[in-house]
């Protein structure tokens, strides 16, 4: 008797899940934040944009995180979404959408889709090259000022960060060199260098990238991350 009861219960457990469940979101919206096709590097977990799907009872956005290399990916249900990059997010300004004449970008999702989002950054870091040797990591890069009209902003500081892992910014760096915007002599061929501290456990490589912070904008711009052996 008991045996049957247990069997029955187990059967109940197995089947019960089927009834009230539905498939998880399967369509993937992915892409990059780009300026003229070139991705814009940012801090991880600190730049997000919002997706809104109108027509539901409660209002609330789906927040999508932008990764360090400017890419993003999110799983969604098929539907018509409105994409908004809030003005305080990222080191860039959004371009008014041709269709909506505002910062709202309509997104029709019918199955997975790749979509790059074009924006205008305040600056771009160009031709960043890194080299390592003798316990030092050096970087050379140029800065291009993209926004030059009335809304242009100054450079607060530039910095070279190195990190043990592929997460490289102010939070995770093990060594850095910072140049204040006022002390920046040139915009081309800027050279920076840091000494690599002792790393335990020892590793003969670090990850490096260059940051540019625009004054009055919280999120800095980054170059691509590069693994450097020293």
């Amino acid at each position: 008797m008991k045996k049957y009861l247990i069997l029955l219960l187990m059967g109940g457990l197995v089947t019960a899940c089927k009834l009230d469940n539905y498939d998880p979101p399967a369509s993937e919206l992915s892409g990059r934040i780009v300026y003229k096709g070139e991705p814009i590097g940012v801090e991880y977990n600190n730049v997000t944009f919002e997706l809104w799907e109108p027509g539901w009872g409660k209002k609330g956005s789906i927040n999508v995180n932008v990764d360090q290399d400017g890419s993003y990916a999110t799983k969604l249900f098929n539907g018509d979404y409105k994409l908004i990059i809030p003005s305080y997010q990222g080191p860039f300004k959004s371009i008014p959408n041709a269709e909506t004449k505002s910062d709202t970008i309509p997104v029709q999702l019918r199955g997975s889709r790749t979509m790059d989002i074009e924006v205008i950054p305040y600056y771009m870091i160009r031709n960043a090259t890194f080299s390592g040797g003798e316990k030092k990591v050096s970087a050379q890069f140029s800065i291009e000022k993209i926004i030059t009209d009335a809304s242009a902003k100054n450079i607060e500081e530039v910095a070279l960060y190195i990190s043990k892992t592929a997460f490289v910014d102010v939070r995770t760096n093990i060594a850095s060199q910072v140049i204040k915007g006022a002390d920046l002599k040139t915009m081309t061929g800027i050279q920076m260098q840091v000494t690599v501290p002792t790393i335990t456990p020892a590793q003969n490589f670090v990850f490096a990238r260059v940051k540019l912070k625009v004054s009055g904008v919280e999120d800095p711009i980054f170059s691509a991350i590069q693994k450097v052996t020293y």
């Binding site: 600190n46 409660k58 209002k59 609330g60 956005s61 305080y88 102010v170 939070r171 919280e218």
Partner: peptide
């Protein structure tokens, strides 16, 4: 290290309230 972001100056009013 601690990092106080600009968005920490005034705390989040949660989505439930705003909705």
């Amino acid at each position: 290290p601690h990092r106080f972001r600009l968005g920490n100056y005034y705390s989040l009013i949660n989505e439930e309230i705003r909705s």
